[in-house]
Design a binder for these strands. Structure first.
Lengths: 212, 212
DNA sequence: AGTGCTATGCGAGTGTGGCTCATGTTAACT
DNA sequence: AGTTAACATGAGCCACACTCGCATAGCACT
């Protein structure tokens, strides 16, 4: 995939700028939501001229996509980090750990409540004429990345099981988890605890068909 | 809830116009997606002046929300219709029937692939300043309506079971189903059959904790 | 230090879309 | 026929996404 950025920031200054823009994008998303987010305001808050903004991001969606990507990286890093301090008894522990980490990020990482890994919006541009929307593709890909990582971890944990169906099952599980957790946070802005528990239950039940 | 329409069309002409606008909105969604959809174009295709458009719909989101609502009504009607021709053996048959009908609508109803019951987008406007987004609320509500209907049907089918947990469980199930089916249609525009099967499996497993 | 040359920084300006509102038209009732 | 209220209309307003041509900074070589 071609990078989500137009120009990859080479020098320190540019790199900081890109980070600042992503930071401000995140807090603005929390403040006003995706639709009301304006590139001008992001640029203004990050103290970057609008022209420069467009040197790095192809468009508004590109900005949000880049943020989603950063969120994904952070998530995987945090999960890996916690795994290095923990010994898992059962594959269900892995699931629970991942869900807990996701929930923690929902609560603390700015903007994560709105975009997490990318599913803010919005539309597959059908057989569209032009400018078809890459957003959903990126969700697909991002959730697929999570699923892939989980598969690897599961393999490591359990020796070497897994028909090819496991891949699909994990993807389904990730997608379902994503949706239910979103529901949990819509129901209760701090994350409905009962629903989070239900989410774990859902995934455990489902995956027990595919794992020991 | 206050109606999604500004003015309820009283006369025949107005009613037809509103229907036409929703129809054109649906096909446009398929053609260009949500972001690229313009109110001007919807109005133009429906042969309705833009001013009149805004007599009925509060804004672009209101239009899409109204379409989502119409989709929901159609879905419930179709499910009810099919139920009247079928005798269910088990509650799983109900689930399967609902899923099949949803899939059928994804395949045939214009715009349904993009908005179904409303989750096109987009954002909860945080503690936003103004114009906070009602879209997600409407998803919440719409999926809750589906869940509620399913609960009633289940009660009828099984006599009278069900702790209060069943309500939550059904909501979770609907949300998860929605997400997985979306995945199935992203993976394969005509609806990945294996994934649809997995979806049923997911829900069966999960709900078997709450139903006999 | 000076001269050319490329990469990067910049923000006024352009096109377009969402939405309004002043005015025209029809219906409803007396 | 006359009065009034409801409805219809589209030119125009404002704000936003995004561009483009000029300015500046960095660098290489003399």
């Amino acid at each position: 995939m071609t990078s989500t950025l137009r120009r990859r920031p080479a020098q320190r200054r540019s790199l900081e700028r890109v980070e600042r823009m992503l930071d401000e994008c995140a807090v603005l998303l929390d403040e006003v939501g995706y639709e009301a987010l304006t590139t001008k305001e992001v640029a203004r808050r990050a103290e970057v001229p609008i022209g420069t903004f467009y040197q790095f991001f192809p468009d508004k969606q590109g900005l949000v996509r880049a943020l989603a990507r950063r969120n994904l990286d952070a998530f995987l890093r945090r999960v890996t980090e916690r795994l290095s301090h923990t010994t898992l008894e059962h594959w269900t522990d892995l699931i629970d750990l991942a869900i807990d980490e996701f929930v923690a990020m929902k609560r603390t990482t700015p903007g994560f409540g709105v975009v997490d890994f990318g599913e803010v919006l919005v539309t597959p541009g059908g057989p569209a004429l032009e400018g078809t929307n890459r957003m959903l593709d990126s969700v697909l890909e991002n959730n697929a990345i999570v699923a892939d990582r989980l598969r690897t971890l599961t393999r490591e944990l359990l020796g070497a099981p897994a028909g090819e169906n496991l891949d699909r099952a994990l993807l389904v599980a990730v997608e379902a988890t994503d949706a239910v957790l979103k529901l949990a946070f819509r129901t209760d802005p701090s994350g409905d605890a009962d629903m989070i528990a239900e989410c774990k239950q859902l995934v455990h039940r489902y995956l027990s068909d595919h794992l020991p």
